[in-house]
């Protein structure tokens, strides 16, 4: 009896020491879940989810404060990826945050631009170049299509243009075949 108590006590003590040591030695900085969720998000930084960017939204999801269906640019595929990552059931996109749209890029009508720099300040990825009282333009390659530059423009000279299909972006489609059951 006493032997068993001592043996188990020693075992518990040793395990406790080991776990205590591991907790300090292998301490994980930050929340690794946030990184993983952030990697799934489309990084448009549009804020349609109600947070200041993709990372804050990832933090909110990790903390359980936000639902996974608040990202319109990620769309249904993005929700499915989040659901799989978090082991939840996918759900339809929350209409409150927006609707899923085809990928677009902002284009500035350079004739109408007055050079106010407001769009430059709004762009979350610094994809607009220009200077005060000079024409501005969007670096198409860097534009995430977040639409944050539209509202501040005082002359409404920014338009969202969908990506035109081109040889380099063209994809083979899912085979449109109807599988017939064998008679």
């Amino acid at each position: 009896m006493i032997v068993a108590v001592i043996a188990l006590g020693l075992l518990a003590g040793a395990s406790g020491l080991l776990l205590g040591f591991a907790a300090i030695r292998f301490k994980v900085e930050g929340d690794p879940m946030v990184e993983q969720i952030d990697a799934v998000l489309p990084q448009t930084q549009c804020g349609q989810c109600g947070y200041a960017g993709c990372r804050p939204y990832a933090e909110a999801i990790a903390a359980g404060e936000a639902d996974i269906n608040r990202c319109p640019p990620g769309g249904q595929n993005g929700i499915a990826a989040l659901a799989e990552l978090l082991g939840r059931d996918p759900k339809p996109l929350d209409p409150e945050s927006g609707i899923e749209k085809p990928k677009m890029a902002a284009v500035i009508d350079e004739q109408s631009c007055i050079g106010c720099t407001l769009c430059i300040q709004a762009c979350p990825v610094d994809a607009i170049v220009g200077a005060a009282k000079h024409m501005h333009t969007v670096i198409a390659r860097e534009c995430t299509g977040c639409e944050l530059c539209l509202a501040p423009c005082p002359v409404d000279c920014i338009h969202m243009i969908p990506f035109a299909p081109s040889i380099t972006t063209w994809k083979w489609t899912y085979p449109a075949v109807e599988v017939k059951a064998a008679a």
């Binding site: 489309p42 990084q43 960017g53 979350p124 610094d126 995430t144 994809k171 083979w172």
Partner: peptide, 30 residues
Amino acid sequence: QYYRYAKNEIWAQEKEKQRAEQARQRHQAR
């Protein structure tokens, strides 16, 4: 046709990932 479709989708997803990573870095830099 199925294999071509799958290859194209994987390439597109990879490109999308790269773009997202680029946007993330630019946002962070900003």
